[in-house]
Design a protein around this nucleic acid. Structure first.
Ligand SMILES: [Mn+2]
Ligand SMILES: [Mn+2]
Ligand SMILES: [Zn+2]
Ligand SMILES: [Zn+2]
Lengths: 166, 166
DNA sequence: CAGCTAAATAGTTATGATTACTAAAAAAAA
DNA sequence: TTTTTTTTAGTAATCATAACTATTTAGCTG
């Protein structure tokens, strides 16, 4: 489910504009890292992104890759996937979806679950491989933490871009 | 959903016997680590287990804790939970279940999903807190990996003990 | 289109959880 | 008890990720 080149460029452009609008700098490095993630559906690890972006920006530092990935994640433009004892995997697909992960080679494919009650038997899954285990985590804020609440992180980047695309 | 003291001791005993039967040594350290995990339902991290076991075995090393946790996991007696950028959390509850995790304090509670299609609205969840996001990973072996397959790890410890308990 | 200034980067070092290493200790068998 | 093999304690290494700091640059000003 890769998006086309035009849409990739449209989103990179939107990203640049939103950056400027909110006082963040739309640097070459940031654009290339984001573009690299928009281009692919294979959920690359940080090292992979680093290797690929380096072809176009040979002097880019690994630190910049990690820093930018954190920024994009904080702003809701990308998400982080994967389980413990694995490298983090990044995803610019902001549609709600789940993942099939091969525990042997690391292949990570998207699962869309309209019929949520049968996700184990979804065509998408059986086409990709055999399911051995299902991991579900519901993440949120527990009762006791809700009492001493604080302000949330801002997702303004994501909101602007997602709204303009759907 | 903690299990009683009798059941804890019964399982530690079963573990010792199964160890001997399969040529693994039922050491004091192993028994105490496993007992510590059987005793609680709070999914402690490795450091937490280390701290607790140290009260009874002051000279135990952190390495032994990690090594034993890996062993117990490999044999299917415990499972590892948690997402990326979190410490691993361990669980001796071998019933199939999911987790609610508080992203602020780390509280991890068990979710049983008889009605799988409505897991977002489960009583258990709403009693614990507010869900912000659902993470599902279906883990298994992809088509291309199934071709060059290898032998699986043995789960004989788990099989023996689980069968005798249910 | 220079010059300005806050923000971002490159290159490097540090961190923190987990794993590996090795001499010494201990469990189980004989 | 003695022997043999596994396991441990203590410590060093690893690996992904984050922090640090001098230098560079994006975007503004005129
Ligand atoms: Mn995805
Ligand atoms: Mn649990
Ligand atoms: Zn695979
Ligand atoms: Zn909490």
């Amino acid at each position: 489910m890769k998006i086309g080149t035009n849409e990739v460029e449209r989103r990179v452009q939107a990203f640049s504009e939103v950056c400027r609008r909110y006082g963040a700098k739309a640097t070459h490095q940031r654009r290339e890292i984001y573009r690299e993630l928009l281009r692919t559906d294979e959920h690359p690890a940080a090292e992979t992104i680093y290797a690929r972006v380096r072809k176009r920006i040979p002097a880019i530092s690994l630190d910049t890759v990690y820093r930018t990935l954190r920024l994009l994640e904080k702003k809701g433009l990308i998400s982080r996937a994967g389980f413990l004892n694995e490298k983090a995997r990044f995803d610019a697909n902001t549609l709600p979806h789940h993942h099939f992960v091969c525990t042997r080679c690391g292949f990570m494919g998207d699962i869309y679950h309209k019929e949520r009650d049968e996700f184990l038997a979804l065509r998408d899954v059986s086409a990709m491989g055999t399911v051995n285990s299902v991991h579900i985590e519901l993440r949120g804020i527990c009762k006791s933490c809700q009492k001493n609440s604080r302000l949330k992180d801002n997702y303004f980047f994501a909101i602007l871009i997602v709204i303009s695309t759907i």
